[in-house]
Computed example of a mutant assay.
Amino acid sequence: MLIRTEAPADILTIDRLVRETFETEAEAKLVISLRENSHLTLSLVACSDEGEVIGHCLFSPVTLDGEDFNWQGLAPLCVKKEYQKQGIAQTLVKEGLETLAELGYPVSVVLGDPAYYQRFGFESAKTYNMNCKWEVPEEAFMIKACSPEFLEGKAGLIEYCPEFDLL
Rank of each mutant, 00 (worst) to 15 (best):
I3M: 01
E6C: 08
P8W: 14
L12R: 07
R16Q: 12
L17M: 00
L17I: 00
T21Q: 04
A26W: 03
K29A: 10
I32Y: 10
I32A: 13
R35I: 13
R35C: 08
S43D: 11
S43P: 03
S43G: 15
L44V: 11
E52L: 12
V53F: 03
V53T: 05
I54L: 05
G55N: 08
H56R: 09
C57A: 13
L58W: 08
L58C: 06
S60A: 05
T63A: 05
T63W: 05
T63E: 01
D65Y: 05
G66S: 01
L74P: 00
P76V: 05
L77H: 03
V79H: 06
K80W: 07
K80I: 12
E82V: 14
K85S: 12
I88N: 02
A89N: 05
Q90G: 15
L92P: 04
K94H: 12
E95C: 10
E95F: 04
E98A: 13
E98G: 03
T99E: 08
E102D: 12
L103Y: 12
L103G: 02
G104H: 08
V107T: 04
V107F: 06
V107Y: 08
V109G: 02
V110S: 07
V110L: 06
G112E: 01
D113T: 06
P114N: 00
P114M: 01
A115E: 07
Y117H: 03
Q118D: 02
S124V: 02
Y128W: 02
N129Y: 09
N131S: 10
N131R: 15
N131A: 09
N131Q: 11
K133E: 14
W134F: 14
E135W: 10
E138H: 10
M142C: 11
M142I: 13
M142K: 10
K144I: 07
S147M: 07
F150E: 05
E152M: 14
G153S: 06
A155Q: 13
Y160L: 08
C161R: 09
C161G: 01
E163W: 13
